[in-house]
Each structure stands twice: as structure tokens, then as C-alpha cells.
Simulated assay, not measured.
Amino acid sequence: MAPYLRIAEALAERITAESLRPGDRVPSTRQLMQEFGVAMATATKALAKLRQDGLVHVVPGIGTVVAPRPRRAPAAPVQRESGPDLSTARVVACAVDIADREGMAALSLRRVASELGVAPMTLYGYVANKEQLVLLMSEAAFAQTPPPPHRPADWRTALRDICRLQWVIYRRHPWLVQVTPLTRPRPAPHAMAHTEWALQTIDGIGLDPVTMLHVHLITTSYVRGFAINLEMEAEARQESGITDQEWLHTQQRAVQDMFATGSFPLLARSTEVLGAAFDLDRMFEFGLTRVLDGVGVLIEQRATGRLDADR
């Protein structure tokens, strides 16, 4: 049995035995990591399995709790196998909503079918498999926020704008960072529109095609790399029921006691602005400026002939 299934089974037994009752918070991923000696991904999958089975659900501001026990019905509800209101777009929208609320670990074709009120096999009439579903979800996310219709003449402003736009997309859909591979791009017109827009931004300023592509990949990779923190923040908020700023507040006393030892004088200076220092949007903007500074140096060196074309 896979480790995550073993953990899910153990928690399900606690729920059945009522050592965990409806409304009780279940152990967080970090608690499961400590108890079962597994990685965060395994613990996350275990909680996702419980959500898929309807044993737990997420309560905003509280975290993951045991779901109410279902009432007995006189007869099983009739499933709507298909109909004029079911479409590929609706299947994709449902999948995006699940991933937005609970992360990719909670996503499965069975879960989507359950949300739509159809049999799991019905979905294969609209998507070939989960891989295609995920690709369509990614495309839907990028289609929701296309590149601007007008491009600033200044390359730096334009690259900054497209990077900020992608940051907005990842903020809306933190799971997206998992499904946008860098070295194995897939045919995805809406995502490729962002690439084309960025390449046109730096076309004609002295860079060869490979360097242009590298500039785009470096800048977009910066956005993707930073967006990993968005997914981790969403998972932590889901588990704990509190925001990052609220969590920092709970740690303030312990941090101040540690700084009082005098071992971390430079870190101690940041105590009063700890929240601002760890604000993801501020850190993103700071880093983006530095990355664009580097691109500016590259362009200047190419223009003056101080850098070989193969460097």
C-alpha cells in the first residue's frame, strides 16, 4: 500500500471510531510528517484522499476538519450522466475551481465527476485523461489573462509588465506552477501567446534568437520560481486556518527572545518590519527589478561589442 494511502486509512479509522468527530480539526501536513515520518507531498496526498472520500473538508479560517456524517437517504440519488449543460469547458472550470480551493493534490477525474454530479466514466467524453485535463486547465488560466493589446516601446517596461501579469495569474492559480514545465513545453496557444509577446518585446535590440529566448526563459522562470511560495502559502493557510502575517504574529515573542541573546544582531534590526520584509509582492518586485537590471547589462554589452555572441 502506498504511504499516503496508509496514512489516509489510519485517519479514516480514527474518524470511524469517533476519536475524530465531525468538526474536529485533523492533523496538518506537518503533524502527519512528524507522526508518520513522510515527506510533505505524501502527507498532502493523504489529506487530499480524505477530501476525495468526503471524510474531511476545508473550512476557511479554521483548516481541514472532519466532515459531517451524511444522512441516510431512502434511495440513492439519480446521477445525471450527461446533458446539454455538460461540456469540456464546464469540466475544466470545475477542475480549476477544485485546484484553486484545495490544490492539485485534491484533483482527480473522480473528484471532478462528483462535483458535477455525473459518473466518472462520463468525463471521458469530454477529456481524454487527467493529463489532458491539466493542460486545458493551464490554458484556461492563461486565457483568462492574455497579454496586453498594446506593448510599451521600452523593452524594460514591457518585460516588467508581462512578468507582473504572469505573477497575477499565479496568484490566482497557485497550482499552475506545478504544471508549466520549463524544458518540456507543450502546444498551448494561450500560454505561448505570453512567450511570443515577450519575444517581440526584445526583438530588434541586438540579441540573437537563442539569446532572446534565454532572456524570456530567465524572466519567466523568475516568476515561476517565486510563485512556488504562493502554493506553499496557500497550503499552510489551508492547514492552519491563518494567514502568513497572522502566523508571523504568533512567532513574534519567540523571535524576540532569540534576538535578545545577541547572536543575531543584523536580523534583530528587522524585528519591527518583519511582516513587510516577508511580503511576497514586495519581494517579487525587488527581485524582478534586479533581474531586469541584469538583462539591461547584457543588452548594453551586446550593443557595445563587449560580449561575445556565444556568451
Rank of each mutant, 00 (worst) to 15 (best):
E239S: 13
I242N: 00
D279W: 07
R269E: 15
V291S: 00
A277L: 15
T261K: 07
L292N: 03
E239I: 03
I242P: 03
R282F: 11
L267M: 13
D244L: 06
R282I: 13
A260V: 10
F264I: 00
Q251K: 13
D257M: 13
M258L: 15
L280Q: 08
M283Q: 15
S270A: 11
Q256F: 06
S263F: 10
F286V: 12
W247V: 02
A254T: 12
V273K: 09
P265L: 05
M258K: 07
D244C: 02
R253D: 13
T261Q: 12
F284K: 01
I242M: 09
T243R: 05
R290Q: 14
E285F: 03
G241A: 11
L288R: 00
F284N: 05
S270I: 07
E239R: 02
L266H: 07
M258A: 14
T243Y: 04
R269A: 03
G275H: 04
T271D: 11
Q251H: 04
F278M: 14
S240Y: 08
A268L: 00
R253Q: 12
Q251A: 12
S263M: 07
L248I: 08
F264N: 01
S270E: 08
P265V: 05
F264G: 00
F284I: 03
E246H: 03
D257W: 09
A260L: 10
G241K: 04
F286L: 14
H249F: 06
A254E: 12
D279I: 06
T271M: 12
M283F: 13
Q252M: 11
M283L: 15
S240P: 01
H249V: 11
T289C: 07
A277I: 09
T271I: 06
D244Y: 01
A260P: 10
L292F: 00
G262A: 05
F278A: 10
G241N: 00
L266D: 09
T271Y: 12
Q245K: 01
L266Q: 09
E239A: 15
R290C: 08
W247P: 00
F284G: 04
V291D: 01
R282H: 13
F278K: 01
E272M: 04
L288I: 08
Q252T: 10
G241D: 04
E239F: 06
F278T: 15
A276H: 02
L280P: 15
Q251P: 00
H249Q: 11
D279M: 09
R253L: 09
R290Y: 04
E246F: 02
S240A: 13
L266A: 09
M258P: 02
T289L: 08
D244A: 05
G275Q: 04
G241Y: 03
H249P: 02
W247C: 06
Q245Y: 11
T250Y: 04
Q256E: 14
R282E: 14
L288K: 00
Q251D: 01
E246W: 03
F264A: 08
G275R: 02
V255L: 15
R290V: 13
S240Q: 12
Q256W: 07
Q252N: 10
G275P: 03
L267H: 05
W247M: 12
G241C: 07
F286I: 08
A260E: 14
D279Y: 10
D257K: 08
A268F: 07
A276P: 03
D244V: 02
L267D: 06
A277M: 15
L280Y: 06
T250Q: 13
E285H: 01
F259D: 15
T289Q: 14
L267A: 09
E239Y: 06
F286C: 06
L248C: 05
D281H: 11
